[in-house]
Design a binder for these strands. Structure first.
Length: 1117
RNA sequence: AGAUCCGUAGCUCAGCCUGGUUAGAGCACUACACUGAUAAUGUAGGGGUCUCCGGUUCAAAUCCGGACGGGUCUACCA
């Protein structure tokens, strides 16, 4: 046990942190923080795995601060909080990085580089920056188990994923289907949304767009239309920017609630009279207002104005079911061809869809299910079949007449490429089937690798049927504590409401393979759920199918669950057919969503952790809000499907870190903040404190280094100084908390006050922390340390520490300050783990109050209701306000605080206020340096009072009469006010009636004390007697002298306890004052006496109140 | 295009849920003061159409509707 409190040699947070880090490492502090809680209730936390193939940024520091803070907090509250780290290792960014590094493209894989070598490269690249990540993790003080992390590419991890997939498969939740996906014909590959979101993929291009005319078939359904048109031919108008999709058209979609009109007019190209149907709202796009009901007879080829007339109006829903003639009919897209694919299809009809708008086009959507996701969905719903008249190279198939085999876009860089879209439009024009053809500029996605336009194309894919559990997911989501709430209800809630099945397939190389094997004819398939099952299958296939099959895998089984090895495995079906693996890999989000189970290799190991709820579901997770549809979603989906449970009970989604101007940080803009430099320069604690207190975690944070500096200076500086102050005197007096804890009732008012405030603070902080509102917690602590502890308690109590003997009052002061410091360090430990541990350890080294080696092994403070005294806190605030008012009065008349004044007067409005003030009297007098405090009551008759309506209470009673009442009340005479106060009631005669009011309905304040200069704040009014008697002046002189001598002591470098002797030169105007207050002066400056001498050559000349004097100060002994 | 968050002093943010009559704090700036812990602090000063428009109400920064601006996510592989 140390005898003295270790003092810091300066506030150097980075160097303190280095020492603490070394201490933690030497003591295994993190491991101990968990092992010490063995047997306690677990608090389950999941670490969202970062990908270590990029450098950590400052935005990682914010979410990790949040995570670390909650975990430390819960640990200190007695929970056991295991934190397994993890690495996200699969996925496209890793592949792209490797391809860039090797200078290859996807096409080269399997040619220039084997899949085996390629995946080996990925495996190496994936943890490329692990060292930097580990480094930032350590330096920022993030306690997470880096020694036993889960790694998503490891066999154990993948085995759990397979188990989950096989469970889903058994439940019928895993299925294969066609979906419409972005596809690059030039590259011959599907594209991920990630790839589509590469900068520059969306380009403004000019495409030939067409408004095509679909001729209505006259039959029962269309009778209404033909009645309106008098039997003339009718056309639906539909707009497309991709005419090449027209041969694949199978339906026209209208909005059920949209108004459509039947218009009589002429085809502008052929000038043939036509009747067309389009959305009413879009008439203006095609027809000029002047042309309405124009002269149809006068119209000819040369006419500029197209006459038109509305014949009838319909709702979209009325049009449903009407049939039309196929626009571009060929052999390949004949009805027979359609029925061959979809035997019961009913194409070429009007159908309805909610996605139809009237913002563009005609309000009638040409629907080709193969080339649009909306089209596909609505097409399926109405069973219109599917036609894919374009092959995977991007050219029309055989059997489309003059368009057969033509590329729909210039995918091959043919120098004389003729746009087939133009030719289609020309054909339509000639055949009276086009109403408008024009170049249309829009933003269209391009393949980032080939720079060619993509198209949406039907591809086979595996899905998880999340829609089957949608209702459970929605219901269970409502039990999750989302911070902020709106993310859970809004962003996430809406997301769930609009859920579609989870497309799992990725056609990639480095990822978790889908463990589905099937026979060549597709009739038999199996989903493998474990390595053992696969190895069994390997042997069985070898036995049944022959010696060469799987021969490399017979001895040790499969050793790596990735491509290309899994693809070499051939299994055997029940009917003895060979089965090969389907080529798909799965979405990496599945990897991370499965981490609750896969991190523990469930169910192959650690079965109880999940089954008995020790590690599932999580009590808390936190990540950036960008994970809402990522990790938060996949965690939730898998938990609901597997265990009908939430995956996490509380989730904090933190906002982004922007630069100080509010722009997103990006390498391109050069505004990225380097977290290493920041932490090295300002310290992790200051950075963490800044991140937590500056803005709520879910608000975007404008990151400004100046803000960290401010935190460092203001918060840590103040706390540091308070600690140093404590050390200075405690070391002198040898305070080591050896004496018994002095009961509160024996402590002075101010001690009881700060302890009451401290306990109020503990309550506030724990409430906020429990509610995942760390910002409020941090701000409350800041306020306490700065305003209450440092600038009120310590300032007012300074003398108690250095004056007088080591007895009860002094010990009480030490115990009180010690308790505050020690409690504060524990309160801030979750946010600032380093500095708190440093101070705590220093304190505890002397007192040994806690039998722990680190603050993070100590318990979090628990507030003590019996210590909280609201009345005491209230009157201290009253005292603070009084002092503030007196100081402002002194300032106004320019009288220094050092100059004593005779008295202050305070009008008291009621007995309670007087009682409260009386208890604070000594404190106030000392603080503002006055001799007396006089209370003025109304009986003295000197106060004039001011009355104002209490709008809140009175407004509720009077309502509309409020305005008049307020005016009447303000106009009350002094007598009326007094009458109200005495009887407690008063009657208001207003236009709207007579009302009785009581004292609670008004605010009465003291307005003035005639003849005095006063200041007021709220209900408190203070008057100051500024008359300076000779005696007061002399006392002021004496105090000034004390100040000057103390300065000299300080400048001379004397110790606090050094006694001095002082010599003064005779003859100064100050002499009388000094002699009069000789004893007082000597006490203050620790001098045995003052010598007056006639000659003083060595002395220092000082000036007090415009009087000069020579002083000599020497140390005794 | 949809969803969502945000908009209060030069800057960073409270206050809004639960409406109440002078809208607060810190930083920065200016002046003065205090200090035997202080890199602090105190007092005073300048600085606000609470983004805008409309509504509800006796009363709106606060509640409701709309617009505008900014951020993010999504834009159909969830």
């Amino acid at each position: 046990m140390s005898v003295k409190y270790a003092e810091f040699s300066g506030l150097n947070l980075p160097s303190i942190e280095e020492q603490i880090l070394a201490k933690w490492k030497a003591d295994n502090a993190f491991e101990k923080s968990i092992s010490l809680r063995q047997g306690r209730k677990p608090f389950v936390f999941y670490e969202g795995p970062p990908s270590a193939n990029g450098m950590p940024g400052i935005h990682h520091v914010i979410s990790r601060t949040l995570k670390d803070m909650v975990c430390r907090y819960k640990t200190m509250q007695g929970f056991q909080v295991k934190r397994k780290g993890g690495w996200d290792t699969h996925g496209l960014p890793i592949e792209l990085g490797v391809e860039k590094e090797l200078g290859i493209t996807k096409e080269d894989i399997g040619k220039k580089i084997s899949v085996e070598d390629y995946n080996r490269k990925c495996r190496e690249a994936v943890l490329r920056y692990k060292k930097e990540w580990d480094d930032i993790t350590t330096k920022m003080g993030y306690w997470v188990d880096l020694d036993n992390p889960y790694v998503t590419f490891e066999n154990n991890y993948i085995e759990t994923l397979w188990w989950i997939l096989s469970e889903l498969y058994k439940k019928g939740l895993l299925y294969e289907s066609v979906s419409i996906q972005p596809y690059s014909p030039a590259a011959g590959t599907g594209l991920s949304s990630h790839e589509l979101n590469q900068p520059g993929t969306y380009k403004d291009v000019k495409d030939t767009s067409a408004v095509a005319m679909f001729k209505v078939v006259e039959n029962m359904q269309s009778t209404v239309l033909f009645n309106a048109s008098n039997g003339a031919a009718i056309f639906f108008m539909a707009w497309t920017t991709t005419p090449w999709t027209l041969p694949s058209n199978l339906a026209l979609t209208v909005g059920p609630n949209i108004d459509y009109v039947l218009v009589k007019t002429f085809n502008p190209y052929t000038h043939i009279p036509v009747q067309v149907i389009l959305a009413k709202a879009l008439l203006g796009k095609y027809f000029k207002p002047e042309g309405e009901n124009g002269d149809f007879d006068a119209y000819d080829e040369k006419a500029k104005l197209l006459p038109w007339a509305i014949l009838s109006t319909f709702k979209g829903a009325d049009l449903a079911g009407i049939e039309y003639e196929q626009l571009l009919a060929y052999e390949a897209n004949s009805l027979n061809a359609i029925l061959e694919i979809t035997p019961d299809a009913k194409p070429f009809r009007i159908i309805t869809g909610d996605f139809v708008t009237t913002e563009d086009g005609t309000g009638i959507v040409h629907t080709a299910p193969a080339f649009g996701a909306d089209d596909y969905r609505v097409g399926k719903k109405f069973n219109i079949g599917i036609l894919t008249m374009v092959d995977k190279q991007g050219k029309f198939v055989e059997g489309l007449g003059e368009f057969s085999n033509r590329y729909v876009k210039n995918y091959k860089d043919e120098p004389d490429y003729i746009d087939v879209n133009v030719d289609i439009c020309v054909k339509l024009k000639k055949e009276n089937r086009a109403f408008k053809v024009e170049k249309y500029e829009h933003s269209y996605p391009h393949c980032w690798r080939t720079d060619k336009p993509i198209l949406y194309y039907p591809l086979d894919a595996w899905f998880i049927k999340t829609t089957a559990v949608k209702d459970r997911m929605v219901k269970l989501n409502k039990t999750i504590n989302w911070k902020p709430k709106s993310t859970g209800e809004g962003r996430f809630g809406n997301w769930l409401e609009n859920m579609v099945d989870w497309n799992l397939s990725r056609s990639r190389y480095w990822g978790t393979p889908l463990p589905v094997w099937r026979t060549e004819d597709g009739t038999e398939e199996i989903c493998i759920g474990s390595i053992a099952e696969l190895n069994d299958g390997i042997r069985k296939a070898n036995e049944l199918l022959g010696g060469e099959i799987n021969k490399h895998y017979l001895h040790e089984g499969i050793l790596d669950l990735h491509k290309p090895f899994v693809d070499e495995i051939i299994l055997v079906s029940k009917n003895g057919q060979p089965m090969t693996r389907v080529p798909d890999l799965i979405d990496v989000w599945f990897d991370s969503g499965a981490m609750p189970y896969a991190q523990w290799h469930y169910p192959f190991e650690n079965k109880d952790l999940i089954d008995k709820g020790e590690a599932f579901p999580a009590d808390f997770i936190a990540e950036g809000v960008d994970q809402t549809r990522g990790w938060f979603y996949t965690l939730h989906a898998l938990a609901v499907m597997l265990f009908d449970s939430v995956a996490y009970k509380a989730v904090v989604s933190n906002g982004l870190v922007l630069d100080k101007n509010g722009n997103k940080m990006s390498k391109r803009l050069g505004n990225v903040v380097n977290p290493f430099e920041t932490i090295e320069k300002y310290g992790a604690d200051a950075t963490r404190w800044y991140l937590i207190t500056n803005a709520s975690p879910w608000d975007n944070l404008k990151f400004d280094l100046a803000g960290i500096q401010e935190v460092q200076r203001k918060f840590f500086g103040t706390l540091y100084n308070t600690y140093q102050f404590f050390c200075l005197y405690a070391n002198v007096d040898g305070f080591a908390f050896k004496e018994g804890y002095i009961p509160l009732e024996q402590r002075p008012e101010i001690d009881r006050w700060i302890l009451s405030s401290l306990n109020t603070l503990i309550k506030q902080v724990t409430d906020s922390m429990n509610d995942f509102e760390p910002t409020a917690a941090g701000r409350a602590i800041e306020e306490f340390v700065d305003a209450q502890l440092s600038n009120w308690y310590v300032r007012l109590c300074r003398r108690r520490f250095w004056k007088g003997e080591y007895e009860a009052d002094k010990i009480s002061a030490y115990q009180t300050l010690y308790e505050c410091l020690e409690t504060i360090t524990r309160l801030i430990a979750p946010i600032s783990p380093f500095f708190s541990d440093a101070v705590f350890t220093n304190l505890n080294a002397v007192t040994n109050q806690f039998k722990v080696a680190s603050i993070h092994h100590a318990d979090y403070p628990v507030y003590n209701e019996s210590v909280i005294d609201p009345l005491l806190e209230e009157r201290m605030q009253l005292a603070q306000e009084t002092c503030s008012l007196v100081l402002s009065l002194r300032k106004k008349v320019n009288i220094k605080v050092r100059q004593p004044l005779q008295k202050i007067m305070i009008p008291v409005l009621n007995a309670q206020m007087k009682l409260q003030l009386e208890k604070m009297e000594d404190l106030i007098k000392a603080e503002v340096n006055v001799k007396e405090l006089e209370y003025i009551t109304e009986t003295a008759g000197v106060i004039s009072k001011k009355i104002k309506a209490n709008f809140k209470t009175l407004g509720a009673k009077l309502g509309a009469a409020m305005k008049e009442a307020a005016a009447v009340i303000t106009a009350f005479s002094q007598a009326e006010i007094t009458a109200l106060e005495q009887s407690g009631q008063s009657t208001l005669l207003l236009k709207s009636g007579t009302y009785t009011i009581d004292t609670a309905d008004v605010d009465i304040t003291a307005e003035d004390i005639p003849g005095w200069s006063v200041a007021s704040k709220g209900k408190l009014t203070v008057a100051l007697d500024i008359t300076l008697s000779e005696e007061l002046k002399q006392e002021g002189d004496a105090r000034e002298l004390v100040n000057r001598v103390q300065n000299i002591r300080k400048e001379s470098g004397f110790d606090l306890t050094d006694r001095i002797f002082v010599r003064l030169k005779e003859g100064s105007a100050l002499q009388a004052s000094i002699i009069k207050f000789n004893d007082y002066i000597c006490r203050e400056i620790l001098a045995d006496g003052i010598d007056w001498v006639s000659d003083l050559k060595e002395g220092i000349e000082i000036e007090v109140n415009n009087m000069l004097m020579i002083v000599e100060v020497n140390k005794k002994g």
